[in-house]
Design a protein around this nucleic acid. Structure first.
Length: 104
DNA sequence: GCTTTGACTGGAA
DNA sequence: GTTCCAGCCAAAG
């Protein structure tokens, strides 16, 4: 298999997102870092926007805040609650649901 | 190949 | 709580 360094940023980001288990969530910054690309939060957002087959609902902004607007935001919240994720106001209870990526 | 875009972040006021 | 600002940089057009 190819070394991680040869994979595109998009691919790495996708792999990181796919590691998030059901009932857990993560943030843009954390995913970028887990993908080996610290500071690429915006890239994560763009990949998610395409999100072919990715669990996009498990990705939140810093502090567990939903960054989507309108319907998408409501749907995200709805889907997460269906997985057992608890909300406090407009944020997810990160203390209970933040996913820590495995160490390389 | 240059310009725009982006579901961001963290700090300051 | 808020608004504003600068930084990050690949992917899309």
């Amino acid at each position: 298999m190819p070394a991680r360094e040869q994979l595109s940023g998009e691919t790495r980001i996708r792999m990181a997102i796919l590691q998030i288990p059901r009932g857990k969530v993560s943030t843009y910054g954390a995913i970028a870092k887990a993908a080996g690309l610290p500071g690429y939060a915006r890239q994560v957002a763009k990949v998610l926007h395409r999100a072919y087959g990715l669990p996009w609902q498990r990705v939140l902004g810093s502090g567990g805040e939903i960054k989507l607007r309108g319907d998408s935001g409501l749907e995200q919240r709805f889907r997460l609650e269906a997985e057992g994720v608890r909300f406090r106001g407009r944020r997810v209870d990160m203390k209970a649901h933040e996913y820590k990526f495995a160490k390389r």
